[in-house]
């Protein structure tokens, strides 16, 4: 059915499309910039004016994953001949890879930090969303004494900038040995995200008619079974939306990761800029690290995009 449109509406529609395109462009520009830089040879990374046309390389990624140092002199022809293709890329840029005493290539810290980021972000997201879902269900379905106060109290943990408590947290963590551990960060991020998760999930739970579970109760299921069989599938959209938010928060967290961790449990965000300091800043390596770092969130969001679109309207479209 074609709705009848006035010329005014058509014009308005065009303006809206242009605005959306413009905003999208503004948001995509930095992502393009990072991606482009991640594939540039080092000498083109910082040219003025910026280089737009270039032959993409993967040398930044090779450098990202290996330890290397500046080359005093060009490698000898034999050395160059003997090197595998990826090592030649590094030689071409005037650098060499660092080998152990036994001649093995030494891996940079990046893969470990990336793994740490994944472990911490995924675990804390699962915990925050899981606990948030149960808590929200309780608040939504049962009479809780002082419900309003409790919910406000839960939210109040978000009412000051988290960094304010960084120093006391650091001291406490040091006292109990949680410094530089995965669990240390997981607990912190879960705590940040929990209030958010409870509030968001409460909204979604309220949208699910309680008749669904009651029908299951009458049909011979326990409340637990009814929750898992009926409520959880209905809440999938809300859970997906909440999980994406929690994951992004945990994944991108910088300040606490910088303060609370240094080697074992350090995540990627504090690691990537730390590479700027070693020698002359190699922006292509930083861009490569950032580019890879963007991927998990992009993939996660992409996989859940259908849920997200519905979730963002916060249940408003349920009839």
């Amino acid at each position: 059915m074609a709705a009848v449109r006035t010329s005014g509406e058509v014009a308005l529609n065009r303006v809206a499309i242009v605005a959306v395109l413009l905003i999208t462009l503004i948001f995509l520009a930095p992502i393009y910039w990072i991606t482009a830089t991640a594939f540039k040879p080092r000498n083109l990374a910082t040219t003025i004016p910026p280089t737009v046309v270039f032959t993409p390389e993967i040398s930044p990624f090779v450098k990202l994953f290996t330890k290397r140092s500046q080359l005093r002199e060009a490698p000898s022809p034999e050395e160059y001949e003997a090197a595998p293709w990826w090592e030649r890329l590094i030689f071409d840029g005037g650098e060499k890879v660092v080998r152990s005493g036994r001649g093995e290539v030494q891996l940079s810290g990046y893969p470990d930090r990336f793994m740490n980021s994944l472990i911490v972000a995924i675990t804390s997201t699962v915990l925050a969303v899981g606990m948030g879902t149960f808590t929200a269900y309780g608040f939504s379905r049962f009479k809780v004494k002082g419900e309003g106060d409790l919910l406000f109290f839960i939210l109040s943990t978000r009412m000051l900038p988290p960094v304010v408590v960084a120093i006391p947290m650091f001291l406490m963590y040091r006292a109990v040995g949680l410094n530089d551990t995965h669990w240390g960060l997981i607990i912190l991020y879960t705590a940040f995200n929990l209030s958010f998760s409870v509030w968001l999930m409460k909204g979604f739970m309220d949208e699910i008619p309680k008749e669904y579970e009651e029908a299951a109760l009458v049909d011979g299921y326990t409340r637990m079974q009814a929750f898992f069989k009926v409520v959880l599938p209905e809440a999938a959209t809300g859970i997906a939306a909440t999980a994406v938010f929690c994951f992004i928060t945990a994944w991108n967290e910088y300040a606490f990761a910088l303060i609370m961790t240094n080697r074992r449990a350090q995540t990627a965000p504090p690691f990537i800029p730390s590479q700027v300091g070693s020698g002359l800043p190699d922006w292509t390596v930083i861009a490569a690290g950032t580019f890879l770092f963007l991927l998990p969130v992009a993939i996660f969001t992409f996989l859940l995009r259908n849920h997200l679109l519905r979730g963002m309207s916060f249940g408003a479209i349920r009839k």
Binding site: E211, Y212, E214, A215, L217, V218, D219, T222
Partner: peptide
């Protein structure tokens, strides 16, 4: 509710 073995039909919302 499960033990009482009654069936409940509502005006709406009783189907998944």
């Amino acid at each position: 509710a499960a033990e009482r073995d009654v069936a409940l039909v509502l005006q709406q919302y009783s189907l998944y």
